[in-house]
Amino acid sequence: MPLKGNLRDFTTTQLLNLINLAGKTGTLSIFEGIRTGEKDAIGQEKMKAGSVRALVSFKVGKLIAATLDNQDGNLVSVLNKAGKLTDEQARIIRERAKNTSDKALALLLINANYVTQKDIVSSIQQHIEDVVYSLLDWQEGPFQFDDGQLPGNDRILVPIDLENLIIRWSRDTHEIDRLKAQIPNLDMGLKFPENPREKFKGIHLSVEEWRVVSFVNPQNTIKQIAKANNMSDIEIRRIVYGLEQAGLVELVKPPSKEAAVGGPGKPAIPRKPQVERGVVDRLIDRIRQL
């Protein structure tokens, strides 16, 4: 069953995180949305998939390739964009190596001392990051994830951790409305996900982000963490948003706030039923018989 949906129902970071956390292997296609005039289950106009806007491939949850439909993502273009090949060199190589795969071309370029292996890896990595970075801002469009579908064998695949990319993107985000929508309640607490050691391995956080991380505890509200660090609402929202989107922290209700979720003026928590274990056993027996 392919994973299908529309980016307006998730943020792109949530979708990429899902693929990352599930350790999926395959390719995410994001399409141009064509409005159908019909409504979906929550009253939004339905969209069907048009032309492909981006392809992002993953291997066991790690980013390995990404291309935009309007970009030539072959090795020569990537090296040219990274400044490793001049425009003239790129033109000549394109002419002479028209039908050569990226892998074969990489060997030729390394052997001819045009570039090093490190140049190639870092240029491809930068290209993938740039592509994914640009689509993190996309707010709508049908998507589909096809399990097991990967770029051809001729492509050079470079595994990249998503978390650093998402953190970097959240630092640059200045959309206050989006931050407020994602972190509407500063009375929430923060907790670490399962296996935090694993998640934080290789993560590059700023001093401010580490300061917030040091206060992560379900007992501390985001507001209290902001106050302790002398941060404005927007600053703390931006940092928490980035950490949360990267899967490094999770939002939780502080224990003392549990009763307040129903909103102000709500009655006290309803009573739990007082039933004996025997009652539950009888229910189980009856349902089994149905």
Partner: peptide
């Protein structure tokens, strides 16, 4: 889900 969780710890 979150709303019902808050109503009662069942």
């Amino acid at each position: 889900l979150e709303t019902f969780r808050a109503y009662a710890p069942t």
